[in-house]
């Protein structure tokens, strides 16, 4: 197992190098001269030259690349170009609000999707199953944007059940007052595609021989579904969660923009609009690292779900 982890970590090295190269290529080569952006509309050549020297842009490309690699491993991306705030500080302060929204979304959303999927898969082929599937397919075709606009207007503005938007420094106020509406929205919108996907996983398992055996032994339906089928269907479900997990940190940037939540997603959108490259660079590289680690963790988790899995 240790050997497996070590080998997987070793395999990450070229990928990480690729990510660093890609980000470097995008922002230092395609992105153009940052000094022109930074110096503003009216700039004299001296100012531009000065900024270029500060950022190291006047150096040859391989020196710039080395600077960037050093930045990645010392967690020091310098300061934001537009707010002059330290990039590390930006990321650390924005991640809290994002997780306040996204962790409940993940927990509630996955639990509901798995439960409903078991139920719908159990009554497959019936009218209920078909109606649920039609509703889910229709719901998926409407843009997330439309849902946010309508729900925010309906529950925030028209009925006034939740505040339209806002955020405080207090965690509990945030969680109980400002977070519920975005969380409900994200859970509801995420439910349809997950339900469809998980239902297909369960259907596949329900056709297996071991289900018939379990029923032949006289086990109750609840026990067959929740102990035998659920555990086997957990592997594809885990893979799916693993795909979504890194996205948790970027959050649903649309929700953050609409509900004025000072999270990482909104920060990235702002950074893109302001051409604030250090922030985007840092977030991209670190999230790529995190994604690779999550993939490794998911592979390890297979082992605990299914003892037959062996690490090669």
């Amino acid at each position: 197992m240790t050997a497996f982890i070590l080998r997987r970590l070793w395999q990450m090295v070229p990928t990480l190098a690729g990510v660093i190269l890609l980000v470097f290529f995008l922002f230092n080569w395609v992105g153009g001269d940052p000094a022109l952006v930074l110096a503003g509309k009216v700039a004299d050549p001296a100012t531009i030259a000065n900024i270029r020297r500060q950022l190291g842009v006047d150096q040859p490309y391989w020196v710039q690349l080395w600077i960037f690699v050093k930045q990645v491993f010392t967690f020091d991306f310098g300061r934001s170009w537009s707010t002059n705030e330290e990039v590390a500080h930006v990321i650390l302060t924005r991640i809290g609000p994002t997780l306040t929204i996204m962790v409940p979304v993940m927990l509630i959303g996955t639990t509901l999707a798995v439960l409903f999927a078991v139920l719908v898969a159990y009554v497959r082929g019936t009218l209920t199953d078909r109606i649920v599937m039609i509703v889910a397919t229709t719901a998926m075709s409407v843009s997330f944007l439309v849902y946010i606009i309508v729900f925010q207007w309906l529950f925030g503005f028209r009925f006034g059940i939740f505040p339209v938007q806002g955020w405080t420094d207090d965690f509990w106020t945030n969680l109980t007052r400002y977070a519920p509406l975005p969380i409900i929205l994200a859970v509801l919108v995420g439910l349809a595609p997950e339900l469809r996907l998980y239902r297909s996983f369960f259907l596949e398992e329900l056709e297996q021989d071991y289900v018939r055996t379990a029923r032949a032994k006289g086990l109750s339906e609840a026990r067959v579904l929740l102990r035998h089928v659920l555990r086997n269907a957990l592997i594809p479900i885990l893979t799916n969660i693993g795909i979504y997990l890194p996205g948790l940190f970027v959050g649903s940037f649309l929700l953050e923009v609409f509900f004025a939540i000072p999270g990482l997603g909104r920060e990235i959108i702002g950074a893109v609009n302001r051409s604030d490259f250090p922030v985007i660079k840092a977030v991209t590289v670190y999230l790529a690292m995190f994604t690779m680690l999550v993939n490794l963790l998911v592979d390890l988790a297979y082992r605990f779900v299914d003892p037959r899995v062996t690490f090669r």
Binding site: P14, G18, V23, L26, V250, V272, I280, V283, T284, L287
Partner: peptide, 23 residues
């Protein structure tokens, strides 16, 4: 395969935004 791994290790939406930032 290496190129594929690089592109898929960055969350998709972030990849789009990174491209959008420079173009």
């Amino acid at each position: 395969e290496w190129l594929y791994n690089v592109f898929t290790s960055i969350p998709y939406i972030l990849l789009i935004l990174a491209f959008a930032a420079v173009l």
